[in-house]
């Protein structure tokens, strides 16, 4: 499907649960409420005409001024050669969301990365622990207000003059 046809089809499929961005530059994306997140992803992945079986990229972005973290999933279909960007927003303090690992196994590691770097936890995730930073690291580096600790295991984190 072309991207316009796909957008029309998804609008018909999901009804009033969708919100489209339609920006002036860059990619168009679909925003859904965080409660519907897992179900909508499940629908889009298994629907015959969408068949978005490939989770291309899954990441989060911190927006402190809105007090929200945005999760972005880039999905794609090899058979239909079309892709869709799905987003949701969750609050920064109680950063919890449903896991997508049952739908796309690739999400297991992407969610671990989001947990490590942005501090978002995922319900029912099979193996949620830090992936890139050491286990005893403090803080979530990709949050905009992150401050680095002064020493880590006796190594100074700034180079002495």
């Amino acid at each position: 499907m072309t991207s316009e046809a796909l957008i029309d089809y998804v609008k018909g499929l999901l009804g009033d649960k969708t919100k489209w961005a339609d920006p002036e530059a860059g990619d168009n994306f679909l925003t859904v409420a965080s409660e519907d997140w897992k179900n909508i992803c499940q629908t889009l992945a298994t629907d015959k005409k969408c068949s978005l079986t490939y989770l291309r990229n899954f990441t989060g972005t911190d927006y402190p001024e809105d007090d929200e973290i945005e999760l972005t999933a880039h999905t794609f279909s090899y058979s239909e050669k079309h892709g869709l960007i799905i987003k949701t927003r969750i609050s920064r303090e109680a950063a919890v969301c449903d896991t997508l690992s049952k739908i796309w196994p690739a999400a297991i590691w992407y969610e671990r990365e989001i947990f490590d770097l942005l501090g978002v936890s995922f319900n029912n995730h099979p193996d949620l622990r830090r992936i890139l930073m050491p286990e005893d690291w403090v803080g979530h580096p990709l949050r905009k207000d992150y401050k680095q600790q002064e020493t880590y295991r006796g190594i100074p984190t700034t180079r002495p003059a």
Binding site: P23, E24, A25, G26, D27, F29, R56, N57, T59, T61, T72, H74, I85
Partner: peptide, 24 residues
């Protein structure tokens, strides 16, 4: 100064799709 927006761009590298997601 790119306009406000976001883009996902990918190329076929030696290890396959190498993509970058940029928010401006």
């Amino acid at each position: 100064k790119p306009p406000k927006g976001e883009v996902y761009s990918c190329v076929e590298g030696a290890r396959g799709e190498l993509g970058v997601y940029v928010v401006s």
